[in-house]
Design a protein around this nucleic acid. Structure first.
Length: 786
RNA sequence: UGCCCCAUAGCUCAAUUGGCAGAGCGUCGGAUUCUGGUUCCGAAGGUUCAAGGUUCGACUCCUUGUGGGGCAACCA
């Protein structure tokens, strides 16, 4: 959702796509894909990905593929393919003709395997699984190369073909990429590409006995389909170098790129397929579509509409930081959607009988009740029978109510919604003292709409049903499945199952609904007034008793207040719990050691630079960290010219960040840029002599990197000399101040931060050429003159 | 412990790419209301993880820390 009015808020992937289009990197259609493995049901976390991928395609007029990533024959099934298709469609998205299966690419993927072998980029390894594991090394130690790594291309090809032909048992050989067994990224230590698996695949049957691994299949599938932006979750970040390696090894230029975003975590729920399966298998829920489950099927059966899910996904945004979304956000999306979609009716969940003593026995009145409240622009009414005996909600009566309670109590009056005002005269009790029934008198002139006293106001309005006309219905009340915000956070021998909420389901077999509700078709959504939104569960369509699932309660400021009073001191404050990213105590007195990243030799070099050139230790440490940097620095320094510390400073602070182009080692790029150390020194000199402000010098530097021209040439070509003429600057400044009298006043009123705004304006008006020191001084003296 | 990623209001995210720290949700008030709902109005809430550095100016760039997450399946 837009954060700033008037300016659409673009998340980082949209920004990437925008710039890809602007720069021409992606001239054609934007192509994304949603790539589930058909081995489980989709959940609300997948919904985030679906909304992202299909939403982007819709937004940019591109397309989104639905691709089943079915490369593991042992876990996948057609049942899941069907349910996933249903769920995506239900969410409101359409893949058109772009339905794909990894299993349809097996032949092409195999050809890529042969190609890699021919290129010398892959080999058949005949070590056992254990040997491969053991020689992979650890995160701190490099792995060792397989003895089979040097097999000839011919031998590899022969072996790979025979693997395909079924000559070998499972595990006898694998195809591995030949990359680097010492790579710090474990994924690059000759990752497995193909394994032998004599297993029946639900689509390809027994055609294949070798299957590609994810790292082989996924990037190449993207390339085959001309996907432009391949979006996945954060845990695949470390796979990206491998993705790039593979794609650039065997594919032609228009190539896909992978970007990673944070998966959704929701309070009071679990999201992994494995844990959801455990809930189902263990009988803790009623199946994959239990209305308490975060599965799409569960949300659907709960009665939530797809519009609400999409709105929710819009609200949570897309970013790269781990998150745990507060349920109130989901609840808001659901209520906000249903408010204008669910007609209002009356139902009493926990009945208390009320006899209206002055209402004639046997007389039935029909009152007219609108389907919608006044503030929803929809029309229509229905008739509701009103008679001598009615049911009201047990919780709407209190014998000894607190001050703020404005429902029924002895002697008090309430309005029965759409009907009459009643007064409680008598309370009838059972032998054990519990209230069995109320005797009330009706103000016969107070009938809603038509009565003489229709406009008489009483404090409360409650809902009701006529006892003789009401229908019975089963109602199921759902609460959160877990009692802990983060059920996966366990101690000792606990599992997430220990955090199950025992009260997550309450079945009320004998609620009463007004007659019209009994005619509802399965799948109908109503608001039971003052109780919440309910959904007639279609899975019970066959049975005689209708089952209404409570989708969600109404927002309840009263219940919240009374609960807060009783429970405030026992409920732990969320803020006080340890949260990721928030240090519990801030360390003090720490002095940073710039040398800490260096080995002994590096430290010596750094100190050498300090002694020789009088550099600050920080700059020296950075330069000493890379041989290339240090050499470059030494050749940039000259007898005449700016002090070495300035050159070092500019290298560390300005040059290096400019080199940091996506996925490359910036310090190594130093030799590839068209800037000579001599030219660089001249640039620093221009800044040092105050010909260029730091801002302009930065501008020139980035120009140098792209154009390769010497700094003076760029300055002349673009007319970038700094403006230090007081009169000229004054004119610009006056114009800026005159154009924004309100801000000038605000500044003089104490909002000193506005100096940045004025500076920005002046710099913009002068094309960044104004001498910032002078401008700032002039602005300050001018603005202080009140 | 090696490499990679992340850190802005209670929660989820912005901040025109170095120029006034904002939005939605939540919280608390007020108005409206025949739903203690909705709608409308308002308020509180910030050492931008910390320290140092660069800069006229840093949420943004550099350094070092801290905290959190990911990576050592023939899963995806």
């Amino acid at each position: 959702m837009p954060n700033e009015p008037g300016r659409e808020n673009r998340h980082f992937i949209q920004q990437i796509i925008d710039s890809d289009r602007a720069s021409g990197r992606v001239p054609g259609e934007i192509v994304t894909r949603f790539p589930p493995e058909p081995n489980g049901y989709l959940h609300i976390g997948h919904a985030k990905s679906i909304c992202l991928n299909f939403g982007l395609a819709r937004e940019y007029g591109g397309r989104c593929h639905l691709r089943f990533d079915d490369t593991n024959p042992e876990t996948e099934d057609m049942e899941f393919v069907d349910s996933i298709k249903e769920d995506v469609r239900w969410l409101g998205y359409d893949w058109g003709k772009h339905l794909y299966f990894a299993s349809d690419y097996f032949e092409q993927l195999y050809d890529f395997g042969e190609k890699l072998i021919m290129l010398g980029k892959a080999y058949v390894d005949s070590q056992s699984m254990d040997e491969i594991r053991a020689t992979r090394g650890t995160v701190t130690e490099p792995g060792t190369e397989s003895p089979y790594r040097t097999r000839s291309a011919e031998e590899n090809l022969d072996l790979f073909r025979r693997m395909r032909a079924g000559e070998f048992p499972d595990g006898a050989h694998v195809l591995r990429a030949k990359i680097d067994m010492a790579a710090p990224n474990m994924l690059m230590r000759d990752p497995l590409l193909y394994r032998i698996r004599h297993a029946h695949h639900y689509r390809s049957g027994d055609t294949w006995c070798i299957y590609p691994m994810y790292d082989m299949a996924h990037p190449l599938e993207d390339a085959i389909e001309n996907v432009t932006h391949s979006l996945c979750t954060l845990e695949f970040e470390v796979h990206r170098p491998l993705y790039d390696w593979l794609v650039s090894a065997v594919c032609e230029p228009p190539r896909p790129h992978q970007y990673e975003f944070a998966r959704l975590n929701l309070d009071y729920t679990v999201m992994s397929k494995r844990k959801l399966l455990l809930l189902v298998k263990g009988g803790h829920v009623d199946g994959w579509n239990d209305p308490r489950m975060p599965t799409i099927a569960g949300l659907r059966r709960r009665g939530i509409r797809p519009d609400a899910i999409r709105a929710f996904c819009d609200m949570i945004g897309v970013a790269k930081s781990d998150n745990r979304v507060d349920v109130s956000l989901l609840e808001y999306a659901i209520r906000n959607d249903l408010n204008a979609e669910a007609p209002r009716v009356m139902a009493v969940l926990r009945p208390l009988k009320v006899v209206l003593t002055n209402w004639p026995e046997g007389q039935t009145d029909m009152v007219e009740a609108p389907w919608w409240p006044h503030d929803i622009p929809k029309k229509g009414t229905r008739q509701v029978p009103f008679a001598r005996e009615i049911y009201i909600e047990r919780s709407d009566f209190m014998e000894d109510p607190p001050q703020a309670f404005h429902r029924l109590s002895p002697g008090a009056e309430v309005r029965l919604r759409y009907a009459y005002i009643i007064r409680c005269d008598d309370v009838i009790r059972d032998a054990d003292g519990t209230v069995r029934e109320l005797r009330c008198s009706v103000d016969l002139e107070s009938r809603s709409g038509t009565g003489k006293n229709a406009s008489r106001r009483v404090k409360g309005t409650i809902h009701w049903v006529s006892a003789a006309h009401a229908h019975r219905a089963e109602v199921r009340l759902y609460d959160r499945l877990f009692s802990e915000a983060d059920p996966e956070r366990v101690e000792g021998s606990e599992t997430f199952l220990d955090h199950l909420n025992p009260d997550s389901l309450e079945i009320i077999p004998d609620a009463y609904v007004e007659p019209v509700v009994a005619e509802a078709a399965p799948g109908t959504r109503y608001q039971f007034e003052r109780n919440g939104y309910f959904y007639l569960d279609p899975t019970f369509a066959e049975t005689n008793t209708p089952v209404w699932n409570r989708i969600i309660t109404l927002r309840d400021t009263w219940g919240r207040r009374s609960k807060a009073q009783t429970a405030s001191d026992t409920t732990p404050n969320r803020a006080s719990e340890a949260r990721p990213g928030k240090p519990s105590s801030s360390p003090v007195g720490h002095t940073p050691n710039p040398l800490s990243g260096l080995d002994a030799a590096g430290e010596r070099r750094a100190h050498g630079l300090v002694d020789e050139f009088d550099l600050p230790l920080e700059s020296a440490a950075v330069l000493a960290g890379s041989h290339m940097l240090e050499t470059w620095f030494r050749s940039a320094v000259a007898e005449v010219g700016p002090p070495p510390s300035s050159i070092a400073n500019w290298m560390v602070q300005e040059l290096r960040p400019l080199l940091a182009d996506a996925n490359s080692d910036s310090d190594r790029d130093l030799e590839r840029i068209p800037i000579t150390p001599d030219q660089f020194r001249k640039l620093v000199e221009l800044h040092h002599r105050d010909v260029l402000s730091s801002r302009l010098a930065r501008e020139v530097l980035s120009d140098m990197i792209t154009s390769g021209e010497p700094p003076e040439a760029i300055v002349t070509r673009r007319g970038l000399e700094q403006i230090s003429d007081k009169a000229a600057l004054s004119t610009v400044m006056e114009a800026v101040l005159a154009a924004h009298p309100d801000r000038v006043a605000a500044y003089r009123d104490g909002k000193k931060g506005l100096i940045g705004f004025f500076m920005g304006q002046v710099m913009q008006k002068t094309g960044g050429k104004a001498n910032p020191q002078m401008v700032r001084e002039m602005l300050e003296t001018e603005l202080e003159r009140a």
